[in-house]
């Protein structure tokens, strides 16, 4: 599938020294034992969330209410970012929260954080929904529309969150090509093959941009914790 969409993907030269530093840091990071790589997981509210989810697994409805208060905004936010439609997003978010309740006994804290477990479910369901919806409508329309609005939207998001979120800043600092690939995948719900078609670049390039983008974000995130 090829979608003709005009794109400008500037790679400002001022990013290059930063990227080189990032690569060296990445090499170091990837050589660290798992414990070092995971160190940040247990910090912040992660431990609290995990405790709550474990309680939820035991049928604790009060714990679920607390879990809801901590995670509903992320669940709804990421779903709405993918689906756009607020009503559909609410419907899916509600299903996801019920899924969290139902499947909480299957959560294993040793496999990852509670927030990642919940967010994965939310995003998966949003992506499945958008792909099925787009099969019924004209999916390409939506992609084109996203191409026109995504940058403004993301910059708006980044501006609002800049001082509060290290992740937003890391996203802002990302290589433009990598950020674009991540946006189309994570917020656009496209497959890697569709992204390659949309951007007019080889699939291998898309894989590489997503992977390096994610790792760069991870390293940036790690650096702030």
């Amino acid at each position: 599938m090829t979608i003709a969409v005009p794109l400008t993907l500037p790679i400002p030269s001022l990013f290059r020294p930063r990227l080189n530093r990032g690569r060296r840091r990445l090499a170091w990071y990837l050589m660290q034992p798992n414990d070092a790589a995971h160190g940040w997981r247990a910090k912040d509210g992660g431990a609290v969330l995990t405790e709550l989810l474990v309680s939820v697994a035991g049928g604790d409805t009060d714990a679920f209410a607390q879990l809801y208060d901590r995670m509903a905004a992320v669940v709804f936010g990421v779903i709405k970012r993918v689906l756009v439609d607020p009503t559909m997003s609410e419907e899916v978010a509600q299903d996801v929260m019920l899924e969290v309740w139902r499947n909480a006994p299957r959560f294993e804290a040793t496999r990852g954080s509670a927030s990642a477990w919940i967010t994965t479910i939310a995003h998966r369901r949003a992506v499945d929904r958008v792909r099925s919806e787009q099969a019924m409508r004209d999916r390409l329309d939506r992609v084109s529309a996203m191409e026109e609005t995504a940058i403004d939207d993301v910059e708006d998001q980044v501006m609002r969150a800049a001082d509060r979120s290290a992740m937003s800043e890391a996203m802002e600092n990302l290589n433009g090509d990598q950020r674009r690939a991540l946006e189309l995948a994570y917020f656009g719900g496209l497959t890697q093959t569709e992204i390659a078609g949309t951007l007019g670049v080889p699939l291998g390039t898309v894989k590489s941009r997503m992977r390096q983008g994610m790792i760069t974000l991870r390293v940036a995130l790690e650096a702030t914790r």
Partner: peptide, 22 residues
């Protein structure tokens, strides 16, 4: 597992309160 943690952090940047009735 690590990518999922990063994706979760990415999701957190677009957090938005759902309708109160939910």
């Amino acid at each position: 597992a690590q990518m999922a943690e990063t994706a979760a952090a990415l999701a957190a940047t677009v957090a938005e309160e759902p309708p109160a009735a939910m």
